[in-house]
Design a protein around this nucleic acid. Structure first.
Lengths: 247, 247
DNA sequence: CGCCAACTTGATGGCTGTCAAGTCAGGTGG
DNA sequence: CCACCTGACTTGACAGCCATCAAGTTGGCG
């Protein structure tokens, strides 16, 4: 009897541990704005959870698409490999963000999603999500907003790539990371970069040497303190001025 | 009696003329994949149609969002104005394409949509579209694909801006326009540019002088014939080689 | 006919890419 | 535990692509 009870508790705890309804990312992720009852219906849908080891891929371009993925913990990059072997990084994703939205269009993934550290994801079968969002108004609305947000984000990157110089791009990049870490309860002033200089460069349309040089210059000028992948933002106002003060 | 009959006919014709169900863009636009009956329900929803004169805006950044727009005819650009007065063009849109998807996220438009020639648009109230797409599965599915396609398109532009040189960018730009004109039943080899060199440059992350120079070089090398805004693609294979043959 | 915006073309300079050499940090094996 | 090895990073010298500045041309429109 006691044993059964203990077992039940364990099961309950295990379920709670991975349920949307108790996930501490629910305000950032898909569940945003849902009632408790609605949350439970979403829970039923998110059955598959997977660990992805650093360096492994969650999905690869040209694989058939059937689910989108919410990051429970960890850090990802998405990239496209060009014919000549070079890569273009199209984004970095952290906990609470969704991966795979690009695959809806053609029902095939159009990029690779690669873990930059050991990560956990929740797979959300897309057909079922569409079904459920036809019943839960709030889910439908929020999902549309998430997709739209991705479009807005991409426009921001386009602007960055189209009009900014190297210093402005990197300042904007650091501020963006800072703000996203902050939204997840981490320090906005001090963090580890999960990606290499080359990956940053690919994302920002710069070469790794340029990334390195600009980091050094930022340090000389007292904006940040860099040591390898560890970044401390010393003068956040200075970085903001760099981004806005374009000319 | 005869008069009334004639009047009715006129009204009917007027309605048919602007209904989704008889729009020759329905295979490119939102109605794709819908049954006749479903189409009629979409027709009810698309009540507002507007003419936008060349140079006028369909919507402006920071206006509240309440509808997305399908282009019936004409040509648009979307842009963002920076603090220092410069503009960044985020896209060019032609008949059958949707405008305003960026506004869903924050319920405010995040860019300006400006007609580059006299144009006609259909306004689709977004709340009603969400309602209808909860009832019509095919509409929901197609709408999701359209949003996802926009994300994929943006990733393509990011790659272009991040890794390509001026010649490659412009070759890719011309090929993209060519293919979209072709999909609309126009010549893929000969067309008028609706935008200025400056707008092309802004979109591609180049200065107008560079755009002009590259066009001249393309002409010298026999890829295209340019005269002001008139473009004739002479060697489409050559342009494709330019884009793929990166090194 | 004249004006103006859009475009073309030339000369020059600077930002960033390229090539190269060297440093640093972390992990592995002796 | 230390030495070694490798990938990641830093820094320097130089070059090339594109931006900038400038002057002239074209075409459309009142």
């Amino acid at each position: 009897m006691t044993q059964v009870h203990a077992l039940n508790q364990d099961i309950t705890l295990a379920v709670i541990k991975t349920a949307c309804s108790s996930c501490n990312l629910r305000e950032l992720c898909l569940p945003y704005g849902l009632s408790l009852e609605e949350l439970e219906r979403l829970d039923d849908l998110v059955s598959t959870r997977r660990r992805i080891k650093r360096g492994d891929s969650l999905y690869r371009g040209s694989e058939t698409f059937n689910a989108i993925y919410a990051i429970r913990s960890g850090f990802f990059k998405t990239n496209v490999l060009l014919d000549d072997g070079r890569e273009q990084v199209t984004g970095f994703q952290m906990a609470g963000e969704l991966l795979g939205l690009d695959g809806i269009s053609t029902e095939r993934h159009t990029c690779n999603a690669i873990a930059l550290e050991d990560s956990e994801i929740c797979a959300i079968p897309f057909n079922q999500l569409e079904n459920l969002s036809r019943e839960i108004h709030a889910l439908q609305k929020h999902f549309h907003k998430v997709m739209s947000r991705e479009i807005v984000r991409d426009h921001g990157v386009m602007m960055l790539l189209g009009t900014m110089r190297a210093e402005e791009r990197l300042a904007a990049f650091l501020l963006n990371l800072s703000q996203r870490f902050k939204a997840r309860g981490f320090s906005h002033a001090e963090f580890y970069l999960r990606m290499t200089r080359e990956e940053i460069g690919s994302y920002l349309g710069l070469k790794l040497e340029t990334v390195s040089r600009v980091f050094s210059r930022f340090q000389e000028e007292g904006y940040i303190a860099v040591q390898q992948k560890h970044i401390r933002i010393v003068d956040i106002g200075g970085l903001k001025t760099l981004v806005n003060h374009r000319l």
